[in-house]
C-alpha cells in the first residue's frame, strides 16, 4: 500500500517537473527575497480564513441547536418555525447571501458592517440551517427510554437536554459537525469577493501583480489542504477521546 502511494507520488512529481517549461516556481521560491515575500503574503491570509471560519461555525452551531429544538417539539406550530427557517435559509446560495448581507443589509438597516462580520453573518446563517438538521437527526436518534429515565428522576426539559440527551447526541453527530467545519473553511474563500483579506483574496491579488496563476493557485490549494487535513485529524482525535470515555 505504502509502495503504491509512493509510486503515485513519484509519478505526480515527475509529471509536474517534466512540464517545467510552463511552471515558474520562482514567484514563491523562499530562497529569493521576492519569493519569500510573496509566500509570506499568501500565508498572511491564514489568520482571517481561520478566524472567520471558527467564529462562523461557533455561531452557526449555537443557532443551529436553537433552531433544531423547536423542530423536535410536539406542537405543530413550533415544528413549522423550524421547517420555515431551514427551508428558507437552505435555499439561498452562500455567495448570494454574502453579497446581500454586505451590500444589501446596510441599506436596509442603515448600519454599516465590516467585511469580516458580513462574512461571519453570511456563513453562519447559511450553515446554521444544516447544523439544525444535523442536531435534529442526532437528538432524534437517542432512545426514548433516555428521556423517560431522565423524567423519572424528575429532571425538567433543560436538564434532560443538557445532561442526558445532548451529550449523547453530540457524540453521534461529531463526524457530521467536523464535516461542516471543513465545509466552512472552504466556503470562507467566497468571502474574498467582498474584499476579505483571507487566503483566496491574497492569492487573487498576487496573481494580478505576478501573472503566475498556476503556481500561486497551486500554493492556495495546498494551503487549504493542510488546513483541512489538520481539522480532520483534530476531529478524529476528539471522536476517539469521547469514545474512550464510555469504554475505559
Amino acid at each position: 500500500m505504502i509502495r503504491v502511494k509512493f509510486l503515485a507520488f513519484a509519478a505526480a512529481v515527475s509529471t509536474l517537473a517534466s512540464c517545467s517549461s510552463s511552471w515558474g516556481w520562482y514567484v514563491v521560491n523562499p530562497s529569493t527575497t521576492s519569493g519569500l515575500n510573496n509566500l509570506k503574503f499568501l500565508v498572511g491570509g491564514l489568520y482571517y480564513t481561520i478566524a472567520l471560519s471558527l467564529t462562523a461555525i461557533a455561531i452557526s452551531i449555537t443557532v443551529g441547536l436553537v433552531i433544531a429544538l423547536p423542530g423536535l417539539a410536539s406542537h405543530r406550530a413550533l415544528r413549522n418555525i423550524n421547517r420555515l427557517y431551514v427551508e428558507l435559509v437552505r435555499a439561498v446560495p452562500i455567495l448570494v447571501l454574502i453579497l446581500w448581507v454586505y451590500y444589501g443589509m446596510p441599506q436596509m438597516t442603515g448600519l454599516s458592517i465590516t467585511v469580516f462580520w458580513a462574512g461571519v453573518i453570511a456563513l453562519a446563517l447559511s450553515d446554521s440551517a444544516f447544523e439544525a438538521e444535523i442536531f435534529r437527526a442526532g437528538i432524534q436518534s437517542i432512545d426514548k427510554g433516555q428521556y423517560e429515565a431522565a423524567h423519572s428522576i424528575s429532571l425538567g426539559y433543560v436538564d434532560t437536554m443538557r445532561f442526558v440527551i445532548l451529550p449523547q447526541a453530540v457524540r453521534r453527530i461529531l463526524p457530521a459537525l467536523g464535516n461542516q467545519l471543513v465545509y466552512m473553511l472552504k466556503m470562507s474563500s467566497l468571502v474574498s469577493v467582498i474584499g476579505m483579506q483571507e487566503l483566496t483574496r491574497k492569492a487573487n491579488e498576487l496573481v494580478v501583480t505576478e501573472y503566475r496563476p498556476l503556481e500561486i493557485y497551486t500554493i492556495l490549494v495546498l494551503e487549504y489542504l493542510v488546513l483541512i487535513l489538520a481539522v480532520s485529524a483534530g476531529v478524529r482525535w476528539l471522536e476517539k477521546r469521547m469514545q474512550s470515555d464510555q469504554s475505559k
Binding site: 423517560e148 429515565a149 428522576i153 424528575s154 429532571l155 425538567g156 449523547q168 457524540r171 464510555q246
Partner: peptide, 24 residues
Amino acid sequence: FQQFNLFPHLTVLDNLTLGPMRSR
C-alpha cells in the same frame, strides 16, 4: 424500566448523583 435505561455516557456514580443534584 425493563430496559434499565441507564445513561450510557455517565459513570455509575454520575448516573446516581444526577437526580439528587439537579432536582433535589
